[in-house]
Nucleic acid binder design. Structure first.
Lengths: 231, 231
DNA sequence: TTAATATTGTGAAATTGTTCACAAGTTTGA
DNA sequence: TCAAACTTGTGAACAATTTCACAATATTAA
């Protein structure tokens, strides 16, 4: 920290590195928000942006924006703000969006099909390369240009195609078994849409999207409206 | 909450009431988790359950389970644990799952169609009553048994059918305009699937499911693996 | 050049959330 | 009945996160 001022002209180490790399989950989530905000500002022709304006994009405070960014380095200029294009690129690099990832999707049902068509994924470098299902009527056919394989061959195909990331869109009852196969193939990142709790080893990152849980949150708010809840 | 008051004769008022009703977002999320865990335990025939066993269902500590529940009252018996059936019902009431909600869904595209077929929703009392789209080929047709209306009539139809909750599955570019209509119809809860930031008044609860954001989180973990991240 | 204004980066303070530790109450078995 | 074993509910300690507040620095205008 001490070196921040002195080294103003040199490339300096990030706070994240200096402090042992502890970045909170919330900070990462907000980084995604900043990324989207910066994309908008860039499109609108802004060259620089202040933490104040960036904060408006979410419901955040300028101090929080600055604190978050300071974990990764000091990207701004006092009196002026942050350079939109460069900050966007920095965040892209931090989030791993400056490259492509090989993605496989298991379960070509309703949710799975919707995800295959979801245009945000390829836009951000997430390319769905393989599909898997256990339904013989779907196996070995093409689904929107991507071949569907038998889920029995999951582990071998994941390795063969160097898949980085697997999306699970299978029924809750099948989720753990499929996950175990995915883990055995050495994949370290899983996005789960099955409405159930899944166990993975510590070195595997799992994120779950549970739409029923989101609705429950809303219904809680409806039932408890009038109370001064903090969210 | 109303039932809490009634019980005040023999049981203490809930912490939530005593402390002014401040329940954190994380607590609500964990309540959903407990609910699912309790459903499992009930199915397996358990009559009572300890905070220890309930904690295993998520990756939580027994103390946290007890603290969370204590916000709403004291439901357990020392030495024995919590009565599975009753606790499940209590949480259902807290989360508003002991009743049904009228839901409308705007945007019958890929994501919207998948959501219409999502079986968890009706299971938990979320009944999709109306669909809306701006595509003339879809309007006035049935989609999986539910009629599709013109999004132009959104506000009037929402009021007419006493819709509690709206799910947005429209493109990012349309999200804010549709939201403004929804808000003008007096709906207080919105679940947004459009990958964009939406502004709502303070008395409207908005939750967003952003699948690209979840993938970004995973790619961050992939890029930064090796760092001692805390999540 | 100077003054007024803007804005970052960051310790410190405040707030919020989690875990600990144990008194109090319940059950079980002898 | 009693003692041993459990388990809740909760104040207090601890940890994490957010906000505050301001020195440092850049920009703008005269």
């Amino acid at each position: 920290m001490r070196s921040m001022v002195r080294q103003a002209h040199h490339k300096k180490e990030s706070h994240a590195r200096l402090t042992g790399g502890r970045v909170s989950e919330s900070t990462v989530r907000r980084l995604s928000l900043y990324y989207r905000g910066l994309s908008t500002f860039e499109r609108e022709g802004y060259k620089t942006i202040s933490s104040k304006d960036l904060a408006k994009e979410g419901r955040l405070t300028p101090a929080q924006v600055r604190k978050d960014l300071s974990f990764f380095g000091s990207f701004g200029t006092r009196g002026l703000g942050y350079p939109v294009k460069e900050l966007k690129e920095k965040i892209a690099r931090i989030l791993g969006l400056n490259r492509t990832w090989n993605v496989a999707l298991v379960g070509v049902g309703n949710v799975g099909s919707a995800l295959v068509s979801y245009k945000e994924f390829p836009k951000q470098g997430f390319n769905i390369k393989l599909l898997f299902d256990n339904d013989q009527r779907k196996i070995n056919k093409n689904h929107k240009g991507i071949q569907v394989f038998d889920v029995k061959d999951l582990a071998s195909k994941l390795k063969e195609h160097k898949i980085d990331l697997v999306i699970l869109a299978v029924p809750a009852s099948a989720a753990q078994a499929v996950t175990d196969d995915v883990v055995s193939a050495g994949v370290k990142s899983i996005l789960n849409f099955a409405p159930t709790h899944i166990k993975v080893p510590d070195d595997v990152t799992l994120r779950s999207v549970n739409m029923a849980m989101e609705l429950e949150h809303l219904s809680f708010s409806l039932v408890n409206k009038g109370y001064p809840l903090k969210f």
